[in-house]
Each structure stands twice: as C-alpha cells, then as structure tokens.
Simulated assay, not measured.
Amino acid sequence: MPDYVQYTAEDFAQDDFFVRWVLLPDAETEAFWQNWLTTFAFRREEVEAARHLVLALHQLPQQRMAVGEKMMLKQRIFDEIEAREQARPPMVRAMPRVAWQWAAAALLVFGLLGGSWYLWQARQGAPAMAYLQVVKTQTADSLREVANATDDTHLVALSDGSSVLLRPHSRLAFPTRFTGPNRNVYLEGAAFFEVAKNPSRPFFVNTAHLVTKVLGTSFEVQARPAAARVVVTVKTGRVSVYPQSSAEAAAQRQTRKLEGFVLVPNQQATYRLADRKLLRTLLPQPRLQAVQPTFEYTETSLSEVFAQLEKAYGVHIVYDEAVLGNCPLTASFTDEPLFEKLGLICKAVQANYEVMDAQIVVTGPGCK
C-alpha cells in the first residue's frame, strides 16, 4: 500500500484506489479511506481537493478528447491558476498552495467545459438537472427555500405537520402550502425527514438524481452535490426510491401506492451515479425495532433464535431450516450489536453468515 501521508493532491487524484473510492465506492474503499482520514485528519484538505478534481475530470467526455487536447487543457488550467494566484491578495490564513491549486483546477474544469459536459450527458440520456433545474421542471407552485450555510442542523416545519432536520450546508425548497394530490419538496445536501402520515397524498423528496416517495414515515436522505452517490436510510415505516430520470418517475406520481424498490427500517438504498445502479443494503449496525427482548437461550433451536432476531431487528434471515433449524443453542446476549450476536451464534454451530441484498444468509453443515 502506498505511503499516502506523503501524497499531494495530484498524487491522490492519479491513484487508482483513491479514484475507485471517489467514483465507485464499496465496503473496502469506504472503510479504508474513512479510517485513514480519521487517523490523518491533517491531510483532509488535500484529499478534498483531489476528490473534487477526480469528480470534475471523470464527469467530462474525456474519451472524445485527443491527447493533444488534454495536454492543452491541462496547461490552460495551470496557466489560469498561476495567474489567479499572482493576482490574489495576501491572506493571513490562506489555504495551502497545493490544495488551493487543485481545488481551483476542479472549479476551472467545470467552468471551461461545463457546457460540453451537460450536452454530453443529455446525449447519453443521463439526468443533467441540478437542484434548481429539478425545481423548475417539476413544479409551478410558489416555493420557499431554506438554505443552511452553518455547521449546525436546522429544524424546518412544513405546512402539513411534517418536519425536516436540514443538515449543514444543505438547502430545501418547498411550497408554503401543499396543494394538489402530492406533496413535493426539493433537496440539495442532506436532511432527516419526519413526514406526517397522509396515505391519500404521497410525499416526494426530489433530488437531482433520486426521488424518495413515502406516505408517512421517518428517513434520511444524503444527496451532496459533489458526492458520487445518493443514500436513503429508513428509520421507521416504508419508503420507495427510484431514479429521477427513470420511466418509473411519471408513473409513481400517479399512484398512492408504494411500489418498486421499497425499503423498510434498518435498510438503506445507495444510488451510484457512475453506473446508475440502485443497491439495497442493511445498515452497518441494525437497530432494535421492538421492545428490548431477552436474548437468553438454553438448548433453544436455531429456528426459534432466528425468528426472535428477525422480529427484534426487522430483518430477514435466510437459512436451510431442514439442515440448521433444529441445531440447539445455549447462550446469553445483552446489548451486543446484531452482527456480533450472529457471529457468536454461527461460531457455536459451525456456520457462517453473509449479507446479500439486505438479507442475512446463514449456511453451515448442520448438527449431527
């Protein structure tokens, strides 16, 4: 593994493992880079600058640019950066030179080729709509906007009794009064929603790439402008999600039912912008959904144990009942996380578990 502590923003932007994390994050890259940033927090500025640059460059139609054009573009970027830096008045607390250069490079790339990028995205059929474009194209209502430019969470009350915890550096647009068959709000950034129940008037959270539809529940939406994915996490109730540009979008606004890609508590949806894939996963630490049960087992069959865990955490455990169902378990658990409980149970009966499409799959040879 390279010595990332010594990397500049340019080095990060050219590192395959770093680029994979930015564009196509998975469990391995997410865990590594989050741990690395926690350990080496003083390098966060360089990492952020490199991340923005990777996003900028990979969202352009680079495969259509000749090598000479790329070199000319790169030279033009750095010439412009140098000119701006020389004209910049001295600052008492300036951003480090390397980090500032690469952040400026990312912004300049967007400025120079923004029009070409949107044209290319339109030809590919991808949703090129930003937050305000979504608002303008989806509603004629008079909207109010709340922008949270602080580092604190803001509470926003909606006319239907719903409430929104608007996260830092996020903004929300919504009608002063909901009219018509649907309740539509528009989000850029992150927010936690507590939606007042009204099955006859579905509630839609619109972001630039993903729509979340609910009838009345609580959930979190993370749709940061520079992020490589949109994440929806359910706390209570059920929600359905679908891409903003999908054929399903228009149909969903005509029905009061929750259909298609439906999430329940302890599940989250991740929409990857790079390949437009919508994935369903369990939360890293599923929360108890029922009153604290007693996890005390004395020669208890695995079928009973799994049934209790399913009810307590609202999860689905898949296993071969004929092979494993009658295996006896004697154990006592308290406040261990679900996956720690499962690990100990599987160890006791010589089984294994894995999470697949928000389901827990347990396999093993069974009991003799």
Rank of each mutant, 00 (worst) to 15 (best):
P2S: 11
D11P: 04
A13R: 00
V22M: 07
T29H: 07
T29L: 03
E30K: 11
W33S: 05
H52G: 12
L53S: 06
P61V: 05
V67E: 15
Q75L: 08
A83T: 13
A83L: 12
P90H: 09
M91G: 03
A99S: 09
Q101C: 02
A104S: 14
L108T: 04
V109D: 07
G114C: 09
L119T: 14
A126R: 15
P127W: 04
K136T: 11
Q138L: 11
V146C: 07
N148T: 01
T153I: 11
G161C: 08
S162N: 01
L166P: 01
R171I: 02
A191S: 02
F192A: 00
F193M: 01
F193E: 00
V195E: 07
R201N: 11
V205I: 15
N206P: 05
V221R: 00
R229I: 04
V231H: 07
T236N: 06
G237D: 08
V239Y: 06
Y242Q: 03
S246F: 05
R287N: 14
L288G: 11
Q289V: 14
S301I: 07
L302Q: 00
E304P: 07
A312C: 06
H316M: 13
D320V: 07
G325N: 08
E336N: 08
F339I: 06
G343Y: 07
I345Q: 06
K347A: 15
N352Y: 12
E354G: 05
P365C: 08
G366I: 08
